[in-house]
């Protein structure tokens, strides 16, 4: 292929992607739940970005609460009151959004990478390799995933990065299953068979023909893994994992629970992080389901 045809080819590919993208955007704008999800998500994104403007990072330190009243109700100074050692709840909430989002997104990346690799491989290979991959997938699908995450976290460690990996490792099985099914239907399509008949290597066929075909599915699926990863993170934090000095929303809830804020009616301590978790999970779920509908016409009307 000469360079000029290569360039036009690439230009055409980009043009096609741009139209596809604008189609997704157009449909998303008309899909009310999905659009609400997107708006909510942008709101949380701005909230997380604005952390340094709202509170200094140092207000997360234990020392920062030393001169403040403990479990004080909201006031001008502390818009969301203080926790049991006098730290600003709003500061923890806004910085916590970064922790929750980071773990949610990073865990999703881990899950999607494992899920895609296993799914593509299981769909593309035949015989023993595929059978073994499917057996592993089955195992991770059946084993109850919170207990699994707990034992992994106990053994591997409790830092946010380890937690993300643990969550990712426990959440990929469903997407591998989905991707495999999609690969199986795609491999029967004419263009993939043609590429294979022309002698293209497996790698080439996967990267050039199969992957672009499953990409929309992977994106929609990933959008749905994020909320469950965030939920899992909050659950693990609530059970004692995670870092008290850089608390996620789940960790804040644990603090609220263990400090007795519920019996003391300190609603400013436990309500905001709980509502934030609901909001972000809802946002990702609405958006993910909407993307699923847009990418997979069979799901229209759900």
């Amino acid at each position: 292929m000469s360079e000029s045809t290569g360039t036009t080819f690439r230009a055409m590919t980009w043009a096609r992607r741009r139209t596809a993208l604008s189609r997704v955007w157009r449909e998303l704008r008309h899909d009310r739940p999905g659009f609400i999800g997107l708006l909510l998500l942008s709101g949380f994104g701005l909230f997380a970005l604005s952390a340094p403007l709202i509170a200094d990072r140092s207000s997360l330190l234990v020392a920062s609460g030393r001169n403040n009243p403990d479990l004080a109700a909201p006031s001008i100074k502390f818009l969301l009151g203080t926790d049991e050692i006098g730290r600003d709840v709003l500061a923890q909430l806004v910085w916590g959004s970064r922790v929750s989002l980071f773990i949610g997104l990073f865990a999703t990346v881990v899950a999607v990478v494992i899920g895609s690799v296993v799914g593509l491989a299981a769909g593309y290979t035949k015989g023993k390799v595929s059978a073994v991959l499917l057996a592993i997938d089955d195992f991770f699908l059946v084993v109850p995933f919170l207990p699994l995450a707990i034992v992994l976290a106990v053994v591997l460690g409790r830092s946010p990065v380890t937690l993300s990996i643990v969550i990712g490792v426990t959440s990929w099985a469903g997407s591998a299953r989905l991707i495999r099914a999609q690969v199986l239907t795609l491999s029967e399509r004419a263009y993939v068979e043609r590429a294979r008949a022309l002698g293209a290597s497996s790698w080439h066929v996967i990267v050039r023909h199969v992957l672009p075909g499953v990409a929309p599915l992977i994106i929609a699926n990933a959008t749905l893994i994020v909320p469950s990863a965030i939920l899992t993170e909050s659950t693990l934090s609530f059970l004692g994992f995670g870092d008290r000095l850089s608390p996620s929303w789940g960790k804040l809830l644990e603090g609220a629970q263990s400090s007795g804020s519920i019996t003391l009616n300190a609603w400013w301590y436990y309500l905001p992080p709980g509502l934030c978790i609901i909001g972000i999970v809802l946002a990702f779920t609405l958006l993910g389901r909407s993307l699923e509908r847009i990418f997979d016409p069979r799901l229209r009307g759900r």
Partner: peptide
């Protein structure tokens, strides 16, 4: 909304 709520937060709300 139910699906998006961690069950322990439900518990806390019921308690409170």
């Amino acid at each position: 909304v139910l699906y998006s709520t961690p069950e322990f937060f439900f518990g806390m709300l019921l308690l409170a």
